[in-house]
Write a protein that binds this DNA or RNA. Structure first.
Length: 654
RNA sequence: GCGAGAGUGGCGGAAUUGGCAGACGCGCAGGAUUUAGGAUCCUGUGGGGAUAACCUGUGUGGGUUCAAGUCCCACCUCUCGCACCA
């Protein structure tokens, strides 16, 4: 929607009341929240978003008796400790009691116009935080159950019917919104929480005091700190029967009805005799009809399709009508992973045994844009399917990797913004391998990626380098048996061999453990650079080169499968590269004979020392202290401490 | 406002457990090859500095430590999420 109009066709967007189907996800709110603790393999920010979305708040519902009436207004508050400071009551304009309350109001027409205006305003504008507070006195009063004071009842634009009871007690001294409202409409401020060591007065306040403190002006509860007052006051009110503790969630039930054709039909039938019924299990699934004409106005053809709508009631055999709304697409994406465990199964939603074997999904990958809805719905479905006895797990995805988005010109790439890079162009010019390699090399997957065309050339160049490397060696290595044992490796051979095995180790770990494909690719690039520098001499060299190239191609294949397969075949292998095992690194080849020790004086790098790996700590210290450059910094000074980190570093503190 | 994440060369990024900051790539500069261009290869490339020694440097300011991009405290900026939620 843009400026109240559809962004595609500019038709005005209006709100309508519709009768729709909902899933009662709120029944699982508490479990969905608590089980966030089980999601140890999920990014923190996704868990936070889920928690925010569920939005639990613990409070109390309190009845405020209506003066001159036989009913009361129930408000929800998380700050029962400020009840003595409640100086008026605010209702949402849509609150069911409003009509009755404004019956005798002097400015009734004005109020009704306000209510009407609120009804037509979209929620986003109406609930924006910088929206000016607006309210109307109803003419009616309620009684503060603690002070006994007569307090006015107002309607206010910022009170939402959907949240809590649609009514709040207004504590002007301790809630910023109420404070602003009170200032605008000249309503009394009553201070009931005094911050520690402070001497506030109502008249001197310029903003609400929302922090902790001790109770004042609160009768028998004076002096209590406000946290323990919450408990005591709630107990007291509950005993009096005028309040009860209540937990509220921001999470709403999940509206699943869509007035569209493209979607799975909601399997509900309406029978005049038997009422609203779920379709019989034997008649499932309800299939979307395909012999249809689409109306020009974009509406769903289903409601007008007699052969679809008209059906028989499976209970009484009489005439019945089908629901013509279809399911939200999120419904199917909430359980497909269970279906994947036995996709050929024709008899049931899925086979519980197969699901029990495969699930949970060890590693789930998806865009960050699904951080709330898809992932919350999948978690909800998993719990429901578990409670139906179909699944044994409570959480569907053990580990979650959220890919970043591709950013271009400072904004997320999207069709509606028109700032897309067409992969076709890239593929036509450089090939799919280059396109894949570049997007994986540019940054780690969880991060957003600012698209920069220039780097693509580099990836293309690298693949050409690989191609030439293999082609140039082809003649010498093609017929060589690389499994022939080699000994007497010279220093240069050993160096290359070490590089090869270091690369295998790093690439394997980067892919398996970290999903950091960018560093895996850079390690492969280093290996290619090393192969270019390497000067082969004789058969042993070519065996080593062949081994290196084989491993290189296999390691490259997840990123650039086409070129890897092509070169693999050119080496003379008949079977696809994909059928060969991933290389394993040889720990012995990586083991260094010499190691570079960094020498620091007072934490600053001053020299480096290459020593045999088995050199003793004492020996290294001696060597370090006799180093010419180190001597300059050490002579004439008192050595206070020498810190030696084996294989790495020696720090001389003077 | 609340919550989360991030901030490192001209750019994308690396540094995995506190131990050589800048891997790898782009870009740029110089050179080789070439009739020329492209492609390729070699060298250099954080800043300062006699271009040596050295100094300095990971958003800012403090702190912990022999040692901080990394840990702690405060702050700034950006991105994302939620947002008048009572």
């Amino acid at each position: 929607m843009e400026a109240g109009l559809c962004w595609r066709c500019d038709s005005p967007v209006v709100q309508k009341s519709l009768e729709q189907w909902f899933f009662k996800i709120t029944d699982y709110a508490e479990e969905l929240l608590n089980d966030c603790a089980k999601l140890t393999g999920w990014p923190e920010r996704v868990i936070t978003m889920q928690k925010n979305w569920i939005g639990k708040s613990v409070g109390v519902e309190i009845d405020f008796p209506l003066i001159g009436g036989d009913t009361h207004i129930t408000v929800f508050t998380t700050r029962v400790d400020t009840l003595y400071g409640a100086t008026f009551v605010l209702l949402s304009p849509e609150h069911p009691l409003v009509e009755q309350l404004i019956k005798d109001a002097v400015n009734k027409t004005e109020i009704e116009a306000f209510i009407e205006r609120m009804r037509h305003e979209d929620k986003i504008t109406r609930t924006a935080v910088d929206r000016e507070k607006e309210g109307y006195f109803t003419g009616a009063y309620a009684k503060n159950p603690f002070t006994g004071n007569k307090i006015p009842i107002y309607l206010a634009n910022f009170v939402l019917l959907e949240y809590g009871t649609g009514a709040i007690m207004s504590v002007t001294a301790h809630d910023q919104r109420d404070f602003e409202f009170a200032q605008k409409y000249n309503l009394p401020i009553r201070l009931v929480i005094m911050p520690k060591g402070d001497k506030l007065t109502e008249s001197a306040m310029s903003k609400a005091q929302e922090g902790p403190g001790a109770l004042v002006n609160s009768g028998q509860f004076n002096g209590l700190d406000n946290e323990s007052a919450k408990k005591k006051m709630a107990d007291y009110l509950e005993n009096q029967g005028i309040a009860k503790r209540k937990i509220n969630y921001r999470l709403r039930d999940w509206g699943i009805s869509r007035q569209r054709y493209w979607g799975a039909p909601i399997p509900i039938i309406y029978c005049d005799k038997c009422g609203t019924l779920p379709e019989a299990e034997g008649n499932l699934p309800v299939i979307l009809p395909t012999d249809i004409d689409f109306p020009d106005d974009g509406a769903s053809p289903l409601p007008d399709l007699a052969q679809f709508v008209n059906t028989t009631c499976h209970k009484c055999g009489g005439q019945a009508r089908r629901e013509t709304d279809t399911l939200d697409t999120f419904v199917e994406s909430s359980w497909y992973f269970a279906r994947y465990t036995c996709a050929q199964n024709e008899n049931a939603i899925f086979d519980p045994q197969a699901a029990a074997y495969w699930l949970p999904v060890n590693q789930y990958v998806g865009g960050i844009e699904h951080a709330v809805l898809h992932l919350l719905y999948s978690r909800f479905f998993t719990k429901v399917l578990r409670d139906l006895g179909l699944l044994k797990i409570s959480e569907p995805f053990s580990n979650l990797l959220t890919q970043g988005m591709v950013i271009k010109d400072g904004a997320k790439m999207s069709k509606s913004k028109g700032n897309v890079v067409d992969p076709e162009d890239l593929i036509n010019k450089y090939g799919a391998d280059t396109a894949r390699l570049f997007s994986l090399f540019a940054s780690p997957p969880e991060r957003d990626l600012e698209w920069n065309q220039e780097g693509v050339e580099g990836s293309y160049r690298f693949l050409n380098r690989v191609w030439r490397l293999v082609v140039n060696y082809l003649e010498q290595i093609k017929s060589i048996d690389e499994n022939k044992p080699i000994d007497n490796l010279c220093a240069e051979d050993k160096k290359l061999n070490r590089k090869l095995h270091e690369t295998i180790k790093k690439v394997t770990e980067d892919i398996q453990q970290r999903f950091h494909f960018n560093t895996a690719i850079s390690a492969i690039m280093e290996l290619v650079n090393a192969l270019y520098t390497y000067k082969p001499k004789g058969e042993a060299s070519y065996i080593l080169v062949k081994k290196s190239i084989k491993s290189l191609l296999i390691m490259l294949s997840p990123f650039t499968p086409h070129i890897a397969e092509e070169l693999w075949e050119s080496l003379g292998y008949n079977a696809s590269l994909a059928t060969y095992a991933w290389p394993e690194y040889d720990a012995a080849a990586i083991k260094k004979e010499e190691t570079l020790i960094v020498i620091q004086v007072n934490g600053k790098l001053r020299s480096k020392l290459s020593v045999a790996v088995n050199t003793s700590s004492d020996e290294i210290e001696k060597l370090a202290l006799s180093d010419e450059r180190i001597k300059q910094y050490v002579t004439g000074k008192q050595i206070r401490k020498i810190i030696h980190i084996p294989q790495k570093l020696i720090n001389i503190v003077v």
